[in-house]
Structure formats: structure tokens, C-alpha cells
Design a protein around this nucleic acid. Structure first.
Length: 475
RNA sequence: GGCCCCAUCGUCUAGUGGUCCAGGACACAUGGUUCUCAGCCAUGGAACAGGAGUUCGAUUCUCCUUGGGGCUACCA
């Protein structure tokens, strides 16, 4: 049977990091073995499910490149199917209608827990004669309970190895609020069977659900897929990452200038490790190397610094053209007016960038005349006269340089000879500040070359004037 | 409370009985690199939770303790 996996989020919130990790591992597993991956929207809870969340999930997955090989399935569109199986279970006496009130149930549950018992249903509806139950069903609100077999279930989890649960402790759980309203555990089993899912890869919080779902499969005559429960992603407090820890959704990371491949790279390393120690991986490399047996058992704490570092690494991996294209949504349109110039700036900033978003702030001086106080031009208290003299010297040098010789190679030599004569700090610092207006920026020659001769001289002129020099050296 | 899962540097992890006085990455510290910041390079500190057992030999196997986590909904 061909391998088939699914990612089955419920649209009750924006797609978050934990969800992406589950989707990623499913997708990688499918790609690695040549199987298929599908998306199923688990919207059986009509109260909490919202269309905008579903849209966000689909769009985010698309941005990440974790796309479904098949049309998206929505549980809300499959009610008739669940109803049919529910009816079958009731007819076969494997499930029954329960008329107990939530209040009664909760009281009994409390009572059991205070006695140190595992709370389970003992309300008595399991003994109701079928005819009577059917009669009451038409006029009384009720739920449907599954007659849980009294036995221990043992199964082999692909990451945890052997796991076993005693179903006697679980009892007759509710599988639907009525014939038309199935609950999670039941709907999952039906859909996985009908979709031909061979491997269920999901978060470890579902481990206790597995034996229940296996009991349903047995009752319905379904096959049992292979299971792999992934370790949880933990917040700084070592608890399951919640929306509170991570007010950030995938869309937020996108807006903050993270690359999808960097986010994926970071996530794949949370609970999995390649055979070799190389950690910066492209998506094709992840597909190539991913295997389930190398998945970790313990939970992993989310650490944003490493994500930043990986993002910087992936930015460096991009070609200048590609990076320029990805930067588009993050910069004012007029910056991109001159494509050639924009590319030159991108090339300069590439190695110092950690996020796409940071580009606008650190590169703005290339596109707009910098505004800075005159004092900034003076290196460690060098007096204004000396500083101005140094700037005028550079300006003179640049002015007599031919346009075609205004390159990094040809400029560096004479400039550094001068810098050695005048003192590197005293000479280079004011030059760099004159061009960038910043305390921190790329090197002066690099900026000058990117800016071009005319604009460079122009900015030097402005700096000289700031230091009280006359605009004498006009050309 | 009950059931289940887990346990190597601060964090992510390598490690499947000897090759481990435990390796890599992030972060941190120090030094180097054309002024600055970043980057890059080098160096450094930093861990097998504890106790029994199995074994000639345990980070690796078993058990217990401790610690952490998940589940225990007419949520998923």
C-alpha cells in the first residue's frame, strides 16, 4: 500500500509553530519515501472553528511550501459519513445512546477522582433496552458512547517503541454529541481509514488517544495505521508551547522577515538530527536525510536565537537576485526604481542581515541622504579642523578619479595609503560617517563604490559644510 | 489524584557496552581580521539527574528514586 500521511489541524487559531513542525515531519516523511501528503481540516467543533483560521492555515502552509498532494478535506463536509458509521455501531450494540446530564457526570467524575480512581462513565445508560433508547432519542438530548473493550492495548510507536494502555481505565467515552456531531477521536478514525492513511505522525499529546482510536478501528473493521508521536515543542517554562508563549503565528514570522526555509530548517532540528553534524540544511537536503528513527523522544525547548542565526545563514545562501526579490515586500517601492543600484546595496547588506525586515533600517542611507550631527564625524575627539582636512583630501582624490576607475580595487590602495599617513581612525571614520551617517555600517570604500562617484562627492561636500567648511571646492 | 511519556553542556543535539577524562551547533567569553558594527577565523568555559543491579567494562541494558511533561472535555 502506498505511503500516505496527513496533517490535520483544527481551524481554531492561526497556524502556529507546533502545527508547522507536525506538518513538516509528515511532509518530509512522505517526500523521503515517495508517498503522498494531504491536508485535512478538522472542523467538527463548530463553536470554535472559523473560516479565517482555515484560510490562514492554508496560506501559511503554501508559503512554507508544505502543500497538499490532494484536495483539502473538511470534516464539516463529511457529516453523512460519520452518521452512517455511528448508526452501524449503535445497531451492532458497540455504541449506545446516553441521556445523562453533564452535571450528573461531572459530579460523579469528581467523586471518583477524590477516591483515587480514574474517572470513567458508570451512569447506566449502557443497560438501556435499544427500543427504549431509540424512543427517547427522538425527543431528548443525548450523546453517543462507545462500549470500550475491557483490555490492555499494546502497540509499537515508531518513535517511542512499545507503548501500552489499559482501556479499562478509560471507560465508555463519548464519540458523538448526536448522530450528526462526531467528536475528534471518532472522526479521525473514520477519515484516516477512508483516506487510506498509512502513517499517523502527530504530536505526543495524542499518545493517550491512540489506544481509544485503535479500539474504534477494531470495532469498525478498519486497518490500523502505523503511529509516530513526535516530542512536544516546549516554551521557555518547559511546558507545551502555547499560544501565549508564542503569540507569533507563521504569518508573524513571515512579516518579521524570516525565510520559510530557515523556519523549516530550525523546526526540523527540534526533535530530529541528521546523521552528519551539518545543521544548515536546504529543503531538498532535509527531504533526502529525514527518517523517523532519528526522531527524538524528549521535548525540545524553542530557542529564538538559533532561528535568527539560521535565518542569517539562509539569507547568505540566496543569490543576490533572489534576495532582492524576497526583499521587495519589505522596502519602499522607490528604492527598487533603479534595479541595478538596488542589487548593489543588497549585495553589500547580505552578509550582515539577520532578517529581511532589518534591511530597510540598515540600508536606508543608501537611498536617502543621511541626517546626522556634525560631531559624529569626529573620531574619538579629533578636532574639527583635522577631520575636515581629511575629508577634503578624500574629496579631492575622488574628484580627480575617473568614473570608470571608481571601483573598489582601484580606490582601496590610495585610500589606505592616505589612511596610514593620517591615522586610520581619524581618516576612515569620518569618511564612513559622511557617507552613511551611521555609527555602524559597511566599510567606506564599499559604500562609496555602491553610491557612485557623484553621490559620494556630494555627501563629502555636505560633511565638510557641517564642519564649518565653505563650499569652496566646487567643481 | 489516576494513566502514559521523557531525562547528555544554559538551549538544540551526536552518541545504540570499550574508539568518550563525551563530539557538533546556538548563545556566551577572549583574541585576530583595513575606522565602526556585523560577518568571518581561532581559542575557551560548559553536560551523561541520583541510587542499585547486569557485565571484565556502562552515557549506552534492567529496576527504583527524583525531576520534567502530556492526557484525564458533550476541545482537538
Amino acid at each position: 500500500m502506498p505511503v500516505k500521511v496527513r496533517f490535520a489541524p483544527s481551524p481554531t487559531g492561526f497556524l502556529h509553530i507546533g502545527g508547522v513542525r507536525t506538518a513538516l515531519f509528515n511532509w518530509l516523511f512522505a517526500r523521503h519515501v515517495g508517498g503522498s501528503f494531504m491536508l485535512r481540516i478538522e472542523d467538527t467543533d463548530t463553536e470554535r472553528s472559523e473560516k479565517r483560521f482555515e484560510d490562514d492555515i492554508i496560506q501559511s502552509l503554501e508559503w512554507l511550501g508544505l502543500t497538499s498532494d490532494e484536495p483539502v478535506v473538511r470534516q464539516s463536509e463529511r457529516r453523512a459519513v460519520y452518521t452512517r458509521y455511528l448508526g452501524k455501531l449503535i445497531d451492532e450494540r458497540k455504541a449506545y445512546r446516553c441521556f445523562c446530564t453533564p452535571e450528573t457526570l461531572e459530579a460523579d467524575q469528581q467523586a471518583q477522582m477524590s477516591q483515587g480512581l480514574a474517572p470513567k462513565y458508570r451512569g447506566g445508560c449502557n443497560d438501556l433496552p435499544p427500543a427504549e433508547a431509540e424512543a427517547r432519542a427522538s425527543r431528548e438530548p443525548h450523546v453517543i458512547r462507545f462500549r470500550m473493550p475491557e483490555k490492555t492495548v499494546t502497540f509499537t510507536d515508531l518513535v517511542h517503541r512499545k507503548v501500552s494502555f489499559d482501556l479499562r481505565l478509560v471507560g465508555d467515552i463519548i464519540i458523538a454529541k448526536g448522530l450528526g456531531e462526531p467528536l475528534y477521536n471518532f472522526a479521525v478514525v473514520v477519515d484516516d481509514e477512508e483516506s487510506g492513511i498509512t502513517h499517523v505522525i502527530r504530536g505526543e499529546e495524542h499518545l493517550p488517544n491512540t489506544p481509544k482510536q485503535m479500539a474504534f478501528q477494531e470495532a469498525l473493521g478498519f486497518r490500523t495505521p502505523a503511529y509516530a508521536h513526535l516530542p512536544l515543542i516546549l516554551g521557555p517554562n518547559r511546558k507545551k508551547l502555547s499560544k501565549r508563549d508564542l503569540s507569533k503565528s507563521v504569518a508573524d514570522y513571515r512579516a518579521d522577515g524570516y525565510l520559510p526555509e530557515a523556519l523549516l530548517n530550525f523546526l526540523v532540528l527540534l526533535g530530529w538530527h541528521p546523521v552528519r553534524d551539518r545543521e544548515v540544511l536546504t529543503v531538498p537536503e532535509m527531504v533526502e536525510e529525514f527518517t523517523l528513527p532519528r526522531v527524538q523522544k524528549g521535548g525540545a525547548v524553542w530557542n529564538p536565537e538559533k532561528l535568527e542565526w539560521l535565518n542569517a545563514q539562509h539569507i547568505k545562501l540566496l543569490s543576490v537576485e533572489e534576495l532582492a526579490a524576497r526583499l521587495e515586500p519589505f522596502v519602499p517601492p522607490h528604492w527598487r526604481g533603479n534595479r541595478e543600484f538596488f542589487a548593489r546595496v543588497v549585495a553589500l547588506e547580505q552578509e550582515r542581515l539577520t532578517t529581511l525586515k532589518a534591511f530597510a533600517a540598515s540600508a536606508s542611507f543608501f537611498f536617502e541622504l543621511p541626517n546626522y550631527p556634525a560631531e559624529l564625524l569626529r573620531w574619538k575627539g579629533t578636532d574639527a579642523e583635522t577631520t575636515r582636512g581629511n575629508l577634503e583630501t578624500v574629496m579631492a582624490l575622488f574628484k580627480k578619479t575617473e568614473e570608470r576607475s571608481f571601483t573598489r580595487d582601484l580606490l582601496e590602495k590610495p585610500l589606505f595609503r592616505l589612511a596610514d599617513e593620517r591615522g586610520r581612525g581619524e581618516f576612515l571614520w569620518p569618511l564612513r560617517v559622511a557617507l552613511s551617517g551611521r555609527e555602524a555600517s559597511p566599510g567606506p570604500v564599499e559604500i562609496a563604490v555602491a553610491l557612485g562617484r557623484i553621490e559620494t562627492v556630494n555627501r563629502l561636500q555636505i560633511a565638510v559644510e557641517k564642519l564649518g567648511g565653505a563650499a569652496t571646492v566646487a567643481s
